[in-house]
């Protein structure tokens, strides 16, 4: 597996090649998974880090968020599972529609929300536990497993979905820190998939990884989306956006400037700032 990803990487680094899925999938939009309206974020009363972002994400799709550093991509992502509320003084405005409720303004159960909107961070952050316990912990805390056998099965299913099972099945009791960076990141993906989410947020999940591991994560993201989950991925790597995503949204200075099918965004951008960003003038 490692060798053929390597050749893929070599093939795709020459130019920005569109992912093979992009063309075929955009026509068949799934149902709406999560929809934001005029979302803004204040980290303090004086400055607004994000304003007026309205985006719709569909199940079965990979959506890429691109833009220069500091433009608010992570800030936006952290609104979707309300992780921003863990930051003191941070305030979200606007509305985010998810399963019929507005998670910003309605009283919702934040813990259930985060269970079904999973998040993978920039740096792999497995727990300091065994591989098995990394995946099993949240399953059992949420009371999802009816028995030990059920738990085992769920752990295995999650590890398979994250394309990690074959590499770790013989030493599930080993420390997660004995894994490579890419494997750790896939373990973190498995950990969230174990909770059967319908949205998966990934904040630059490959920034700490080499090209092979990156390709493995991308393939994983693709297969997760194909199973009906809405995957939203922040990336600095435009080739990555082109390879994996169906839609791409461009952020600039706290605003969402342009959004559309990935193919169109890269082949025919309309905003000048996006044109400049794609041609590598800044960012």
């Amino acid at each position: 597996m490692a060798t053929d990803s390597l050749s893929n990487v070599a093939a795709s680094t020459a130019n920005i090649s569109l992912g093979e899925h992009a063309a075929t999938r955009t026509s068949a939009l799934g149902e709406v998974a999560i929809k934001t309206e005029d979302v803004g974020v204040f980290y303090n009363e004086k400055s607004q880090a994000l304003r007026n972002v309205s985006l719709t994400f569909h199940r079965g799709e990979v959506a890429a968020l691109i833009g220069p550093s500091g433009c608010g991509k992570s800030t936006f992502l952290r609104c979707l599972n309300l992780m921003n509320l863990e930051i003191p003084h941070c305030r979200i405005v606007g509305s985010i529609h998810y399963h019929g409720s507005d998670i910003v303004n309605d009283k919702i159960n934040m813990f259930d929300l985060r269970k079904s909107i999973g998040m993978v961070f920039q740096q792999p952050n497995p727990f300091r536990k065994s591989i098995y316990d990394n995946v099993a912990l949240a399953i059992s805390r949420h009371g999802m497993a009816s028995s030990k056998a059920d738990l085992d099965e769920r752990v295995e299913r999650a590890l398979r979905a994250a394309v990690l099972w074959d590499e770790v099945k013989d030493d599930l009791n080993k420390s997660a820190y004995a894994l490579s960076g890419g494997q750790q990141q896939r373990l973190c993906i498995a950990r969230t998939l174990a909770l059967d989410p319908d949205v998966l947020l990934m904040d630059e999940p490959c920034s700490a990884l080499d090209p092979i591991a990156t390709r493995a994560i991308e393939d994983t993201a693709r297969s997760i989306a194909d199973s009906g989950i809405s995957v939203i991925i922040v990336t600095h790597n435009m080739q990555q956006a082109a390879r994996v995503s169906d839609t791409t949204s461009f952020f600039y200075l706290g605003e969402m400037v342009e959004t559309g099918p990935t193919e169109r965004i890269f082949s025919n951008p309309s905003d000048d700032r996006l044109k400049g960003y794609i041609s590598g003038q800044f960012g």
């Binding site: 599972n81 992780m83 863990e86 934040m110 813990f111 259930d112 929300l113 985060r114 269970k115 999973g118 998040m119 961070f121 740096q123 952050n125 497995p126 727990f127 300091r128 536990k129 912990l137 949240a138 805390r141 949420h142 973190c188 950990r191 969230t192 909770l195």
Partner: peptide, 25 residues
């Protein structure tokens, strides 16, 4: 590390569960 807390909270665990099952160990 901070990222251990974030990981717990992002999995929908409460602050208490995160403390007891992730931070204290």
């Amino acid at each position: 590390p901070r990222d251990q807390r974030d990981a717990g909270l992002a999995l929908g665990l409460t602050r208490w569960e995160t403390t007891v099952h992730i931070l204290l160990p």
